[in-house]
Design a protein around this nucleic acid. Structure first.
Lengths: 336, 336
DNA sequence: TTAATTGGCGAAAACGGTTTCGCAAAAAAA
DNA sequence: TTTTTTTGCGAAACCGTTTTCGCCAATTAA
């Protein structure tokens, strides 16, 4: 029993294929009577239209792409959750692509989209992306694009972000209020949009508090992931080590804990810590971690909803949209 | 500059579309000379073949589907990493679908695949799946299917699993060796394949040690996620409370920590704990958590590789394949 | 030398839907 | 009544590839 096509439906009912097609799409040209018959037989044979035939003719795929650096990260996986939810409601399918921070891969992937494989794109860029032209090319080729979280400042496209500057400012202020005189800011990728804003927020708070630049450190933990702990150890072994740390991405949180444990530095007594993370485990860390929690699910949902608006209403100018969903500061024992 | 099709290439070069198509696919019927010309122009115009036209004609999509209960879970997100890696190598695209443990959704999704949208399926089933026929139907319709992690025992299909029985047995033995007289096993979904094996492994170890059934408890934490902690509190408030806990899924780990903290029960002095989880935060929990760590990445990679073997070699009988990749016991402070 | 083969290419028919257009009959308007 | 409009449907083109044939010329075998 091979898959029934629209042709066999037509033959079975003594109708033309065009009639069947219209009946299935509930066209007004077809009588209710005929529609009923067609629908009935279609249900009976469990007819499922071939999506590729439809895509070819209609020049749309009912598919969107999600391009992200990494999926094994609480922020991105939760965001995907939000994206999938609205895609499903809309009857769209979701293709997923991981760049692993490789601009080259990202470029390849985006280039492929010029073929019309997807109707829209949700992207959180690599840390090296802003030098490329692949995204603007895709946009110019007519692909609706929404940045979420990580974006390129100078590309005119929709974006759904969180309040990186503000939340980083608040996090830094918190450390200072709790008594930190030498708060340090840890990052991974200096030129990433979100990092620049978080860094700026940190600096604003530090300057406002009148902390000398010599005491305010911005440490960029580049290099391979397994070397991060070493870099933090070096930082914490300095005689004039920081008494507060902002871990600006999730990945930096475990290394900070490791380093403190190794050096016998007590959190929060000797060093206060706050991290940008959505880890569910934050409350059960030792000590429990104060976090800047991003609205990952909402960002995913909102970005997807925006994208669909752009896909469905061509009159809608997607590129003007800039949505900010605030993060939340959750205070726990690491900043007592 | 609209997208160049094979037709414009043909016209530009004064060739037939069939010739161009064959040249692009490096057919032996075409002279090297012609191929060079075609390839050159194609590169120049950045020609990307329309995937849907190709899919329609060839009746294959170069796309696979990944159907999982949830993506915001360290096991599944890491597994996706492995899957995406091999899909990319093979030039395949990856569609992702989340069931959120709903059998109904899963059925809808699988039904859609009868249309030929995907060439293969990687699935980790919901906790209610085994009652349905949707998977066997898909297989019978000719879709290559590989189960990974969660599967249905009685469906004849390929599977890539970890050694749930054995690792649970070892974990339980560890608790007993460290002195636990009353180890309890916590689960979420009793009828899930992986749970049954883990439960069996637990029981084997418990029986082997001669622990009375009255002291060996299997607690099923059903109900909504936010009630889990309450159920564990009830368990731990019993006068004859357990002195060891196996948290058989990641989701149970935080509630156990919460409950112990609330009741002032010390881990590991008063109760030892081991969890099935891939959380990167395990080493920095309070106390650090001993885990059964599943080879999530390898499972994803292996399952995908197997699937592609089934897709590419029709002679290969996928359904006989059963691969087991062992988990690792990582001992930390929660079982000292 | 002629016959058989090979190499290189083009015409056209798929793949399975969608959409445009045309046509007849029925209904409404004149 | 005739004319116009509406209703319901079918024929055929089309989306962009792939693939099967068939053809002619050039090469090889007989």
């Amino acid at each position: 029993m091979s898959k029934p096509t629209i042709k066999v439906l037509a033959k079975e009912l003594g109708l033309a294929v065009s009639t069947v097609s219209k009946a299935l799409r509930d066209s007004h040209e077809i009588s209710q009577d005929t529609k009923d018959k067609v629908l009935k037989l279609a249900a009976q044979l469990n007819y499922i239209p071939n999506p590729y035939a439809s895509s070819l003719r209609r020049q749309k795929s009912r598919t969107i792409a999600v391009v992200i650096p990494e999926v094994a990260d609480s922020f991105f996986s939760i965001a995907i959750n939000g994206i999938e939810e609205v895609a499903r409601e809309k009857g769209y399918h979701v293709l997923i692509y991981l760049t692993h921070e490789s601009l080259e891969r990202e470029t390849e992937i985006l280039n492929e989209f010029k073929s019309g494989r997807v109707d829209g794109l949700l992207i959180s860029v690599t840390r090296d992306t802003c030098s490329g032209t692949h995204i603007t090319e895709a946009i110019e080729a007519g692909l609706p694009v929404v940045f979420f979280d990580r974006m390129c400042e100078d590309i005119k496209a929709a974006r759904v972000l969180t309040d990186d500057y503000e939340s980083s400012y608040q996090a830094t202020r918190l450390l200072i209020e709790r008594g930190c005189k030498k708060p340090a800011y840890l990052s991974i990728s200096p030129n990433l949009s979100i990092n620049q804003k978080r860094e700026a927020g940190y600096l604003a708070a530090v300057n406002e508090a009148g902390i000398e630049t010599s005491q305010a450190r911005i440490i960029s933990c580049d290099g391979p992931d397994d070397k991060i702990t070493e870099q933090i150890l070096i930082l914490l072994r300095q005689p004039n080590r920081p008494d507060g740390i902002i871990a600006s991405v999730e990945k930096l949180v475990p290394p900070v804990y490791f380093a403190c444990k190794e050096l016998g530095i007590n959190i929060p007594e000797e060093i206060r810590l706050i991290g940008f993370t959505n880890l569910t485990a934050s409350p059960i860390l030792n000590p429990s971690l104060s976090t800047v929690t991003q609205p990952a699910f909402e960002i995913g949902k909102t970005a997807a909803a925006l994208l669909f608006k752009g896909i469905e209403k061509t009159s809608f100018d997607l590129s003007r949209e800039k949505l900010i969903i605030p993060s939340q500061l959750q205070l726990r024992d690491s900043t007592l």
